[in-house]
Amino acid sequence: MSARETILDAVRSGLGNTAVDPAAVRRDADALLQDLPSIRPALLADGLVDAFIARVTSPKVAATAECIASASELPAAVGRYLEAFGLPALVALQPAAPLQALDWSGFELHDRVAPDETIAIGVARWGIAETGSLVFHSGADTPILANFLPLHHLVMVRADTILPFLDDYAAATAGQRPPRNVNIVTGASGTTDIEGSLVLGAHGPRFLHVVIVGTPDSSE
């Protein structure tokens, strides 16, 4: 008997050989996701953008954030960031249309992220207000390594793509073919492996800066 059959048999005999009705299992599984507000934390603010920013900049996530009115202001925001850190205008730009459509004059751009890349600019598909997370899908315009190799990661996210809870991301993509990787990124890379003390920039980025594009809550 194959390992597969042996294991499945052992599972069935361990469970007492009950016949499974897939529809009933499905119903039970769905029932376990009812009344979600009772099993998840409340948001930090009423407005989604405010709640998202409050999380991103909280001590637990320890990233930085700023808002701009339109994507066309992104290069200027990047310029200010580089100046603040005294970094040269040499950046890896994620090969995504919303970024490449912008006017990057004055920057030296490349789309392959080097192993010791100083700064990379990316765009997230979604933001999550519950956790201050950014969600990326691997694909033709999203190399996964671009999220992990640079020392500074600057990420643009549109205000209208900020979802309240992680569950809303699951619901938004349910039934679609998943990408190879879904990265839910919350803050910069960190480790507490030496005596429990937190150090940022373990293997991934040491700095995460989030740029939110669009209408803030106050003017909605």
């Binding site: 803050g187 910069a188 991934g204």
Partner: peptide
């Protein structure tokens, strides 16, 4: 004691057509 880890990743299958890496 964190609310979520810095990186939560779902891995589904090998590199897909057009993917930049994987």
């Amino acid at each position: 004691g964190a609310d979520v880890t810095q990186y939560t990743t779902f891995h589904c299958g090998p590199k897909q057509p057009g993917d930049r890496d994987g």
